[in-house]
Simulated assay, not measured.
Amino acid sequence: MTDPRATLRRPADRRRPAARTATLVALSALCVLVALVAVTPYLTGSLESLAADDAGLARNYVDRPTAVRAAFFVHLVAGGAALLLSPWQLWPGLRRRHPGLHRATGRTVLVAIGLAGVSGLVIAPVNEAGLVGVLGFGSLAVLWLAAAGLGWRAIRRGDVPAHRAWMIRAFALTFAGVTLRVWLGVLVGAQSLWPGSDADPAAMFDRAYAVVPFLSWVPNLVVAERVVRRGRLRADGGPRPAAPPTAPAA
Score class of each variant (00 low, 15 high):
A18G: 04
P92H: 10
V62P: 10
A224E: 01
A6N: 14
R156G: 07
A78Q: 00
A26R: 07
A243M: 11
R230K: 12
R95P: 07
T66M: 13
V212R: 00
V77E: 02
P213T: 13
A19M: 10
L94W: 06
V222S: 07
P41A: 02
L43E: 13
I123D: 03
Y209M: 06
G149T: 03
A51D: 02
F214Q: 01
L233M: 14
R10K: 14
T44P: 01
Q191K: 13
S49H: 12
V109I: 14
D200G: 13
T40F: 12
N127G: 02
T44M: 03
A71C: 06
R232I: 12
F73L: 14
P161E: 02
R96L: 04
V34N: 03
A146H: 05
C31E: 03
S86P: 06
F73P: 12
A22Y: 04
H102S: 07
R226C: 12
L145G: 08
R64K: 06
A52L: 04
A247D: 11
A116P: 12
L83K: 06
T21G: 12
W217I: 01
G79S: 09
N60W: 05
R9S: 11
A35M: 11
A35L: 09
H98F: 14
A51E: 00
P4I: 09
R59A: 10
S86F: 06
A71N: 11
H75I: 12
T21Q: 14
R240I: 13
A148N: 04
A235M: 04
P4L: 03
H98N: 11
A202Q: 15
L187A: 12
R96T: 06
F137V: 08
G56N: 05
A124P: 02
R207D: 00
F171W: 03
S192Q: 13
A52T: 07
V68K: 02
S197P: 12
S197E: 14
W217M: 01
L50S: 14
S49V: 15
R169Y: 00
A116F: 04
A162V: 00
W183M: 08
V34M: 10
S197C: 15
L143C: 08
L115Y: 08
A210Y: 01
A147P: 05
T105K: 11
E225N: 12
P41K: 03
L84M: 09
L121K: 10
A18I: 04
G106V: 02
D206N: 13
V118G: 00
G158V: 06
D53R: 14
V126I: 08
V32H: 03
Y42M: 02
W217V: 02
S28T: 14
G114I: 05
A162M: 01
I123T: 12
A12D: 01
A203K: 15
P195R: 10
I155P: 00
A116T: 07
V118N: 00
R240C: 13
G185D: 09
A147M: 05
V122N: 05
V39N: 01
W152D: 09
S49D: 08
P195A: 08
R107M: 07
A147S: 10
L233Y: 06
T7K: 15
A82W: 02
V25W: 00
A170S: 07
A242M: 06
A112G: 04
L233A: 15
S119C: 09
E48R: 15
A249P: 10
M167Q: 01
D3M: 08
A199V: 14
V77C: 06
G106C: 03
A22G: 05
P87H: 09
